[in-house]
Each structure stands twice: as structure tokens, then as C-alpha cells.
Write a protein that binds this DNA or RNA. Sequence first.
DNA 1: TAAAGCAAAACGAACGTTCTTTTTAATTTT
DNA 2: AAAATTAAAAAGAACGTTCGTTTTGCTTTA
Lengths: 195, 195
Amino acid sequence: MSKEASELTKKKIFDYCMESFAENGYSNVGIRNISKGTGLSSGAIYYHFSSKNKIAQFLYDTAIEILLNKIVSAVEKSSNDREALKAIIFTLFKLTDEDPHLMKYVLYTKHKDFLPEALPICSAKPFEYIKKFIKAKIKEGVFRNVDILIASSLIMGPVIRIIQLKMEGVIKEDLIIYTNPLFEGISKSIFKNNH
Amino acid sequence: MSKEASELTKKKIFDYCMESFAENGYSNVGIRNISKGTGLSSGAIYYHFSSKNKIAQFLYDTAIEILLNKIVSAVEKSSNDREALKAIIFTLFKLTDEDPHLMKYVLYTKHKDFLPEALPICSAKPFEYIKKFIKAKIKEGVFRNVDILIASSLIMGPVIRIIQLKMEGVIKEDLIIYTNPLFEGISKSIFKNNH
DNA sequence: TAAAGCAAAACGAACGTTCTTTTTAATTTT
DNA sequence: AAAATTAAAAAGAACGTTCGTTTTGCTTTA
């Protein structure tokens, strides 16, 4: 069988599990369920992944990497501090709109329950990157001089909250429309100069 | 057998399950585990609760009620708007310090995974109460006139974020020490007049 | 024709739950 | 007051089912 076909079935497993783990929870998704959902046999699944848990790990690692890349490139494209912060918010909202399952799996899942050695999500690379960004802006005197935990909570708290409201079905619309109003609110709490 | 003794064993099951469900996740806690943890037999457990799921429901309902009572009484004791908001934050932080398992079970659990008809936590009574409070303050012109979703995210987002950081082990200290600095930050984003 | 890809059946362990039996404590009877 | 009765409480084995995983064997492709 061709290598592309093999990669295709692997992708099929990936996609279905991302959606199903996110929507139904890891423990509620069995191999037989994945089998039915992908149209593959359990043997085929175990040919591509050595265990159910390894699928979850792979999903996690991949999702974290995607998220990190998007955030880094969003920040690097920005030409000033306010733009950078807004870009972070926009990127997270946009990704939630475009790939809700991925975002749900990353931000709305207790990975510790089935990935014992996974870092708490706030300590994962994307959020460590944001934390570093915030730290730098405090040091530069752009953000108010408050405890880093306070600062990152004031900034990321509302963002993550909005995303969770979307995931819980409270918000129906695309999240990107909330970028500006939320940014305005966050700005007032964290920027030293609100010109 | 005495009624008090019966209530005591029920409490024993309650306490162990609250802790164990919160720390290990509902699916990872079996009846045999509860049996071992409480020193009771599975028969004894099923004598007091008709199913494992019913235990989880009971925990949820009880926790929600405790939370609601604390928040309502905190708000009602306050003599002005700023005090009221600070009291909400303080109450949530204090409860997290005093009963981390309860708070973890309420705020850090995907109840939908095992309680199919549970409301999303943000739509549960305590948070609906807070939402009403925020709505009223917007109407009164105390808070800025922004979308209610934005307002509640700006206010509760950072609070919940701090609580989650504590639950993930990132924060070691008691949360109540963060009440004032966080309140100051949130104030700037939401109050019309920051005197 | 060897290897890769997959299907299907089967395995043992663990699950939630049920069942029967025993223990315990309070109440009633003598 | 002691003995008998009753019902609640708890124990623990057993049940059927589902779980993740393994095994075996058949296709299909390089």
C-alpha cells in the first residue's frame, strides 16, 4: 500500500480522535468507538498507534505545537506592544473558530487524567511563551508592575474564559468579533499608559 | 443501628469521593477504589447510593449549593459595589484555600462527561447569580457599558484563572493574599470611575 | 514474493452492579 | 432485666459487560 494511503488512515484516526476526545472525553471513547467512527478495525488502529494512550499523547503534542507556532508568528509580525497583545488574543480566538475540536482538546481537557506526565496546560510551551512576553513587558515598563501571576491572569483569564464560554455553547457566534472589545477591557487593567 | 452512624458513613463516602473524583477524575475512580479508600464494602456503598453516578450528582448538587450560599451572603453583607465585587473574589479564593477538593470538583471537572444533564458550570446557579449582579451594575452605570459576556469574562476570567493555577500546583500559597491585587486589576477594566 | 496494511476474532482484566448472607443495634416481649 | 425479634447496615462473592490489547491470518502493494 502506498505511503500516502497509510498517512491518510493515520490522519483519519487523528481527526476522529481529536473530535471525539474533545467532545466526549477520553474515557468515554473506546477503541470500538474509534473503529466505528473511522471505519477501521481495531487491528488497523493498533498498527498505527501502539496504544490508545499514545494517540492522546500524539494529539496533545501536535496541538501544542500548532498553537505555539501560531502564537509566535503572530507576535513576531506585530510592530508594537498593543498590536502584539491583540494578535495573541486574535490568534487564539481565530483558532477556536477554525478548529474548535483542537482548542477544546487543548484548553478544555484534564490531560492529567489520562496523560500522567503531561504538563499542566498553563506550563505548556505556548503559554510559557506568552508568560515570557508578559514578563518582558513588565520589565520594560509597558505593563504595570504587578506580580507575574496577577498579570497573566488579568490578561489570559478573560481570553480563556471567552473561549470556554464558546466551548460550553453559551456563545454561538465566531469569537473573533470579541477581539477588540475584550482587548480594550484587558488593556485598561494591564497597560501603564492607556493613551 | 443509629441514624448518626449511618449519616457518618454517608459522609465518609461523600468526602472520599469529593477528593478522589477531584484529584483523579471520575472515570479513574472505581467502586473498588472507593471501597478501599473508605474502608467500606461495595455493598455498603450501594446501600447509601444507588449508583456511582448518583454519588457524583450528589456531590455536584451539594457543592453548587454551598458555593451559591457563600457568594450570596458575601454580596449581601457588602455595603457598596466595590466591596461586593471584592467579596465575591475573596469568597471564591477563601473556599479554594479551605476546601480545595470541592472547588476542584466544581471548577476543574468536565461534568458533562459523566453527568449528561448537568448544566455547564457557567450556567449553574452561583455563576448565574454573579452574572445578574454584573448585569445590574452595568445597568446602574457602575460598570462600563460593555457586552455582558465581555464584562463577566473580564471579571470572572482572572479569578477563575488564579484558582486554576492553584489547582494545577503552579501557585503554592493561599489564594486570599491575591484578593487585593487582583481586585485592583479587575477594577481598572470594569469600573467606570476608578476614583 | 516479501512486506506492509488491515480485518476479525479472541484474551484477560477491570468495570459497575446485584445478590445473598452476616453483623449490628435498637425495640419489643417476657 | 434478660431474652427474643426486627430491621437497618455492611460485607463480599459473583454476574454480565465492556475495556484495551493481542493474535492470527488474509489482502494488497512494491
